[in-house]
Simulated assay, not measured.
Amino acid sequence: MAISEAEAVVMEVLWNRAPRAAEEILAEVGPAQNWQEGTVKSLLNRLLRKKAVHAERDGRRYLYSPLLTREDYVQQESKGLLDRLFGGRVAPLVAHFSEQRKLSKKDIAELRKLLRDLDDEQS
């Protein structure tokens, strides 16, 4: 399921707390995104068609809850990025960031720990 950047903004709101009405979502992200009510409702309708969210009637309004988990979304996006840019391999991704000097000492320490942990699991 492909989620656009704008749809992901709405999903973040729902992942943080659900169920939420469209008006609540608008109040949370509308000013920062410069969105109007129609924009939020359009995004919610797209997410409903994709089955990423569920809507439940609550009087005269609908309350929205995520069906797609944040973990599944991150996994999809990560795999897509790796596949598109690095042939599905992690090492070239890390090499790219190290060449661009985007890795801090803390990042390097965390990567070393991760590699040690992976080595221990395979031993």
Rank of each mutant, 00 (worst) to 15 (best):
69 T>I: 11
96 H>G: 10
116 R>M: 09
40 V>D: 00
104 S>G: 12
72 D>L: 11
77 E>H: 07
53 V>T: 01
15 W>Y: 07
103 L>F: 09
104 S>Q: 08
71 E>L: 14
6 A>L: 09
113 K>T: 06
82 L>P: 10
51 K>C: 05
68 L>P: 04
58 D>P: 05
92 P>Y: 03
112 R>N: 15
11 M>D: 01
112 R>E: 12
65 S>P: 05
88 G>W: 05
65 S>Y: 03
17 R>K: 09
39 T>Q: 03
16 N>H: 08
86 F>E: 11
77 E>T: 14
19 P>A: 04
39 T>G: 12
109 A>Q: 04
69 T>G: 04
41 K>A: 07
73 Y>H: 00
5 E>F: 07
64 Y>A: 00
23 E>L: 12
33 Q>C: 06
19 P>F: 02
9 V>G: 00
85 L>R: 14
28 E>S: 09
48 L>E: 01
19 P>C: 02
1 M>A: 08
44 L>W: 00
86 F>H: 04
45 N>Y: 00
112 R>H: 10
108 I>R: 10
62 Y>Q: 05
18 A>R: 03
64 Y>D: 01
26 L>V: 02
42 S>T: 11
51 K>Y: 02
59 G>E: 06
25 I>Q: 00
48 L>R: 08
115 L>Y: 06
60 R>E: 11
98 S>Y: 14
111 L>F: 14
55 A>W: 02
41 K>Y: 01
72 D>R: 02
83 D>S: 14
44 L>E: 02
70 R>I: 04
81 L>A: 15
28 E>K: 00
59 G>I: 15
102 K>P: 07
96 H>F: 14
36 Q>M: 11
61 R>N: 11
99 E>K: 11
99 E>T: 06
80 G>C: 14
56 E>W: 12
1 M>N: 07
81 L>H: 15
43 L>H: 05
